[in-house]
Design a protein around this nucleic acid. Sequence first.
DNA 1: TAGATTGTTAATCGATTAACAATC
DNA 2: TAGATTGTTAATCGATTAACAATC
Lengths: 226, 226
Amino acid sequence: MLRRKRIAWPTVVRLSEYLIILEELVENGVDVVTSRELAGLYGNNANQVRQDLFCLAETGRVGQGYSVPVLERTIRQALGLTEPRGVAIVGCGRLGTVLALHVPLANYGLNLVAAFDVDPNIVGKNLGAVRIDHADRMTEICRDRRVRVAALSVPEEAAQDSASKLVAAGVVGILNYTRVRLKVPARVVVQNRQIICSFIQIACAAFCGHDSLPSPGLVPDADVGR
Amino acid sequence: MLRRKRIAWPTVVRLSEYLIILEELVENGVDVVTSRELAGLYGNNANQVRQDLFCLAETGRVGQGYSVPVLERTIRQALGLTEPRGVAIVGCGRLGTVLALHVPLANYGLNLVAAFDVDPNIVGKNLGAVRIDHADRMTEICRDRRVRVAALSVPEEAAQDSASKLVAAGVVGILNYTRVRLKVPARVVVQNRQIICSFIQIACAAFCGHDSLPSPGLVPDADVGR
DNA sequence: TAGATTGTTAATCGATTAACAATC
DNA sequence: TAGATTGTTAATCGATTAACAATC
């Protein structure tokens, strides 16, 4: 029981979404949730919820359901969100600004500690609580502030260069919002998040008949109480 | 050969990303690409690329590879991007503005034809080429302009109500950027795209050892020529 | 107690990988 | 021709679904 097996990726994705749902339940003062209820909210089925939760340390009570606050905390633990991590935003245009200001990073131990741009009109300004520094100082500053995760929202020409600087500074996870395919060492994880792909996918799902798909992120009408 | 089978969802996701890569190759004047090369760029393997492409109509030439422009067009066709579709942005705050201005929707037949907000300081202004209308007129306007896909970037309180209006107007695909779980009829496809989930997932991938994962969107170092 | 629901194992399903004949 | 690479089928692997004993 000591050696916890690595959580399957589809499960990681769903856990992160369950977490959002559970937070809302906490806010609404809901104390207990059953796998059936959570499945109804998420849009999958109770079996899958239980199987997903099975990878966590002890959480539910047979016959009763899951304690919402306990489950919420356990998922955070399992996803590694209890350790604080330094985050950087690279490219403080419109998208970078959204990422910094619109996304509740700090709720998940993801502390925005650095932001970069090259535009002299932007460098020196603040993005939320952090000062926007010049991209020339990226490696140095990221290393100093122990940035581990970064979001890349720069123009294409600057993407690979920025990524390399981040890697040099010890960053191990990059959310890539540019359409450039980054070359990084195997130890660094990159997730490509071109927003246009979401639009393409939803169009395909809607028009080419992918209506009731169990895939991560594709949640059709909830099938509660079936 | 007439009845084309529905494309598997993981394949749809990858095809949309291959498409971005192919466009870049077109720009660079590359004429032909092999499954091996494309896999190198994407970060998977040649077998998977060929299997993915297998669902398309005739594309490659045995022994030679794939014609980049032909492949690009064929993928567009398969994903249903050749038909123009009306798109609406609901909620024109910072995020909605990014979606409208930063995402090359029109390149994929996704025409932004409507935008909505409730803020009197915003209503009446332009978002790109479209006028921002008041959300009260959403159903009417979306129906008139044949909006089929919408992105939801409104405050939580307005999310379900907006979704219902969109559904009433005949929208069949919703990209939901709010953390509310929308209730919609089964025929309507919803994809939840809370940006925070991407950050949670990359943190988990980076720190809980999900480094070399074949999952959609998680692309580690390219393994070309292995 | 009876009803409900979890934890967990087994069965099924689907996606990825491997392999190779066809052919450019 | 020989080398390369596709199209396609088969084998493997992993994820989802089903089932049910344990137990609150």
